[in-house]
């Protein structure tokens, strides 16, 4: 145990936790916006996989990482259009249509990978950007201020999303639509337009999350996300639909994972119990859901398609 509490290991664990938290955070923030308007998107994992594959493919073909990021975003946007049509126009059951998106993303990204790339190929990595001055802070600077631009983006989006939801008219509309669409509608807010926008934003961020994941790993593999998108959806509940708490959840998740890895490296966790350790985050989430369930109110119109009476 003593090995763990050395500065360099703690710093490395912190940095690793932040890196791991990035895709969760990007996807969960997008999902937060969507859920605030009353739309549940369970297809995040599928959208991430598609975003990841197309970003990876672009990076391989062009060598241009920023173009890859844009393609990831665009892939998310396209899936957003699809999801908006399904849930807003056709008013489909959201819990299940998300599973459709997930299955499509899982299958199609795998198919495309096998046909177009096939073998593991490395792209270059998004270079870490050292923030001047801050990254010079001994130890802490290394952990906090030497990440890729996408990681900073993810964390900067936290206050941005809070601001969007609570300080702008659009945000007010989002919350109104998510809480009481009938009332919002009677006040002249177009419920469907608001929801389409939040869906597009949410899916675009899921696509970005996929790009962030694959450009960090540098290599794509079928089912790269391993269910990460589902955890991101859970983190929204975990964070009670508030971006700072969502961030806390994502960080907790990332740090727990990073700590487990470090403990395995240092031999603190015996190999036998590593599966039990792997259960911990999911159990933790369920416990958090139970604890929060009585105390936090979900957007009242969540998962309910809007029908004008």
């Amino acid at each position: 145990m003593s090995d763990f509490f050395t500065v360099s290991v703690l710093v490395a664990t912190l940095a690793s936790g932040i890196r791991l938290a990035t895709p969760y955070l990007l996807a969960a923030l997008g999902e937060t916006i969507g859920q605030r308007s009353g739309v549940l998107n369970l297809g995040v994992d599928g959208v991430m996989l598609l975003g990841a594959f197309f970003a990876h493919w672009t990076a391989l073909e062009t060598g241009n990482l920023w173009l890859a990021v844009v393609v990831g975003l665009f892939t998310g946007l396209v899936m957003g259009v699809v999801y908006a049509i399904i849930t807003v126009y056709f008013k489909a059951e959201q819990g299940i249509s998300g599973i459709g998106i997930f299955l499509f993303g899982l299958g199609f990204s795998d198919l495309m990978f096998e046909v177009k790339v096939g073998t593991p190929k490395f792209t270059t990595q998004l270079p870490p950007v050292e923030i001047p001055l801050l990254s010079d802070i001994p130890r802490v600077g290394e952990a906090l201020f030497s990440h890729s631009l996408l990681t900073y983006t993810a964390f900067l989006l936290v206050p941005a999303v809070a601001w969007l939801l609570h300080r702008t008219t659009f945000g007010m509309n989002i919350r109104a639509v998510g809480e009481n669409p009938q009332a919002a509608d009677s006040l002249g807010v177009s419920v469907n337009a608001v929801r389409v926008k939040t869906i597009l934003i949410g899916n675009t961020m899921a696509g970005l999350a996929g790009a962030a994941l694959v450009l960090e790993a540098k290599v794509f593999q079928p089912n790269l996300t391993q269910g990460l998108g589902f955890i991101a959806v859970a983190l929204v509940y975990f964070g009670a639909w508030r971006s700072p708490f969502v961030m806390a959840g994502a960080l907790l998740y990332g740090l727990v994972q990073a700590t487990v890895i470090q403990w395995k490296v240092l031999g603190i966790i015996s190999r036998q119990f590593s599966d039990i350790a792997a259960m911990a985050p999911a159990v933790l989430t369920v416990v958090a859901l139970i604890v929060l369930a009585g105390r936090v109110q979900a957007p009242r119109a969540l998962t309910k398609p809007f029908e004008r009476h």
Binding site: F90, A92, I99, G100, I101, F104, L106
Partner: peptide
């Protein structure tokens, strides 16, 4: 032909079925 095609098709079927008016 990669068998993952079946997974993608499953997703497409779900999307079409849930989108259908009848369901609602």
């Amino acid at each position: 032909v990669p068998a993952s095609m079946a997974v993608a098709l499953n997703g497409i079927v779900v999307i079409f079925v849930v989108s259908s008016d009848r369901f609602r």
